[in-house]
């Protein structure tokens, strides 16, 4: 038996909204440590990795580790029926083929809605991601990151992220011209959430397909800050810290030959 209760259905809804454009079917692996999910897009360019630890839930029970294979679009249909502050309970039997989602309206305890989603058998490729030291880490407000990528995507299909000790520069070049946004490292004393934190041992410049970077911005509603971890010629690790877990992407770079 698996049963997990989230005090705010919106947390799970935002997670699923963040993956809907690139990832069709995903396995949500439930264990005594919480719920985790890892999925690669069909083109093998982006990988999403999510972990919601047990502390994220107001109650949590998982007698035996199970994998809940779910179609993201179907799951969203159900999650979108909920109010953001509904309490969500997810339940599955060990050998069942359904995930039950129960929504309780915190402002109207007389209303309870219940949905059953058919589980899928998803044959997923699993990747072994090596432990990596990143030589450049830029942490910035997620809304700023989202804005930069949205603005520059209009200029070109690929965006270069250039991290140096004193700042980070995002550049796009395309048929209509080019554009760049530079952010200087700052501390914004007293305004930690707005600061641009830069830790660079070695300057790094990596180019990415802007379509995939756009996908990694969709998680901005999940956390106020995002960190971009880079090292020469390897995938960027883009991570949003959740209250009890993380929501992250690995994105393969474009390399000049």
């Amino acid at each position: 038996m698996f049963e997990a209760k989230l005090n705010e259905a919106s947390v799970f809804k935002k997670i699923v909204e963040s993956v809907k454009d690139g990832f069709k079917n995903c396995n949500f692996d439930c264990s005594e440590e919480g719920i985790s999910m890892e999925s690669m897009d069909d083109a093998h360019i982006a990988l999403v990795s999510m972990k919601l630890g047990v502390e994220a839930f107001s109650s949590y029970r998982c007698d035996r580790s199970i994998s809940l294979g779910l179609n993201i679009e179907s799951l969203l249909k159900v999650l979108r029926t909920a109010n953001n502050n509904d309490v969500l309970t997810m339940r599955a039997e060990d050998d069942g083929d359904l995930l039950t989602l129960v929504f309780e309206d915190s402002s109207n305890p007389d209303r309870i809605s219940e949905y059953n989603l058919k589980l899928l058998n998803i044959d997923q490729e699993h990747m072994s991601i090596p432990e990596q030291e990143y030589t450049a880490t830029v942490t910035l407000p997620s809304s700023e990151y989202q804005r930069i990528i949205r603005d520059l995507t209009q200029l070109g299909d690929s965006i270069t992220i250039d991290a140096a000790k004193d700042g980070v520069r995002f550049t796009a070049e395309g048929d209509i011209g080019s554009g760049s946004v530079s952010l200087k490292a700052n501390t914004n004393v007293g305004e930690d959430e707005k600061s641009i934190d830069i830790a660079v041992e070695e300057p790094v410049a990596l180019g990415f397909n802007s379509k995939y970077l756009t996908q990694t911005c969709k998680a901005a509603p999940l956390a106020p800050r995002v960190s971009l971890n880079m090292c020469k010629r390897i995938p960027i690790f883009i991570s949003y810290k959740l209250q009890a877990g993380h929501f992250s992407f690995f994105l393969a770079p474009q390399i000049s030959e």
Partner: peptide, 14 residues
Amino acid sequence: STRQTLLKDFFLNL
């Protein structure tokens, strides 16, 4: 010219 790499170029496929 630039080449789009794939995650498989970096990560081991289990």
